[in-house]
Design a protein around this nucleic acid. Structure first.
Lengths: 130, 130, 130, 130
DNA sequence: GTGGTCTAGACCACA
DNA sequence: GTGGTCTAGACCACG
């Protein structure tokens, strides 16, 4: 996963978003464990505290559950929530883009063209490496 | 303009984005003045210093030029830059959305549907009131 | 005279400096009048209030004296002060440059070379047009 | 470093100039951190926000790079820029002095003498205390 | 009235 | 501890 440290959106949110999407996509299924705090921190070259905050966030949402000494497990009923939040995030991104396009005076055609371009670019595989 | 204080993207950037888009859309033309620091601050219910930061950014980009005692003026050749940056921002939003959709396991059809929904929602007029 | 509106040094000071130097150089001699407030403002494309502040500054220094309805006159004993202040300003500029050069790790040779270049560039005539 | 609050050049610019020169001189090398916002603010008896503005400017110039929670780091390729800007500033100071000298009617000999005096005065060590 | 700088002090994100 | 954003309110330069 690409972490953008310069982005205004906090790193811990980027991590949480990523896990949430992975759960929504079925990369991690209910009962699976997600990568350990330290493993994740090493992989992303990020402070463990930052990963911790992301995991806390997901636990609060009920997507994962910690079992001391065993790791973080994807819950049975958290998948629906993860899916809902992920779709909402996608919708929010598109809505934001559409509004910005309109505010900038872009024609509907150009806006649609930008979307098509985004779909091609989006083919870049962002799957997690387990 | 709607300012979202809870957004991870700083308020001053939201303001700068807004003005940039307005310039790109031709709401403010070269030679025009944009709303004064204090007027903008009052309208957005934000501290004047925050507006100032936004205006500084735009001045650095060459979109506007300050004249002490007179106001901030849209430059002749800053419009192209404003346009370019605005379009890039739109593209970035769509690309981000598309990537997130793919990462969440959304089908191309659902992704496209989300975009269409965004276009309808985007019709909300976000023009500035001068 | 070239006025730099973007400079951090206030416009009124730039004007005062210029007049002071002109007096020091003998362009305006004791008993002469300097250009009227409005003439100066028109020539420099500056607000009359700004010129006024410059003239006030010079009057406070004793370089000029206003005679109502007649204009601003260079005083007999103000010339020495104008000269002293102008020389001090020159000295200050060089000292500032020398310190900056040293702080930037420039060699004495390079520093001297920069000065020589400045002398060549300085030949640009900056005399007032009466 | 001496901060002159009465100078027409803003304090934050004085700070940025100082750091830029230090980087140009090799006091801070690529990969080094410069003093923290708060440390600098304490040392200069200045508000942290003021230091921040200076650091922002340097980051925009590419001289330093911020890492949240870690500090501000001198970049690999920002040193050249810092050097170039610093030399340009020295040149500007000398040119300004030379022009002022000429406008004040100083002889080339006196001008040169003023420069020599500046060089002696400039020996004052303005290195930062880390 | 305009923009520009500075301070004091708050809260947040990150290590 | 680090940097980053925001507020409230001050003073200055300019028109």
């Amino acid at each position: 996963m690409p972490i953008d440290a310069t982005s205004p959106v906090p790193v811990f949110m980027q991590i949480a978003d990523h896990i949430r999407r992975s759960v929504a996509a079925g990369v991690y299924k209910p009962g699976d464990t997600i990568p350990s705090l330290r493993a994740m921190a090493l992989e992303l070259v990020v402070n463990p505290n930052t990963v911790q905050r992301a995991y806390e966030e997901l636990e609060r949402e009920g997507v994962i559950q910690s079992r001391r000494g065993l790791g973080m497990f994807v819950t049975q009923d958290g998948v629906a929530g993860a899916r809902a939040r992920s779709l909402a995030a996608v919708q929010a991104a598109f809505t934001h883009g559409a509004r910005a396009a309109r505010a900038a005076g872009m024609s509907p055609e150009d806006t649609r063209a930008a979307f098509e371009r985004a779909c091609s670019d989006g083919q870049i595989d962002t799957r997690v490496q387990p």
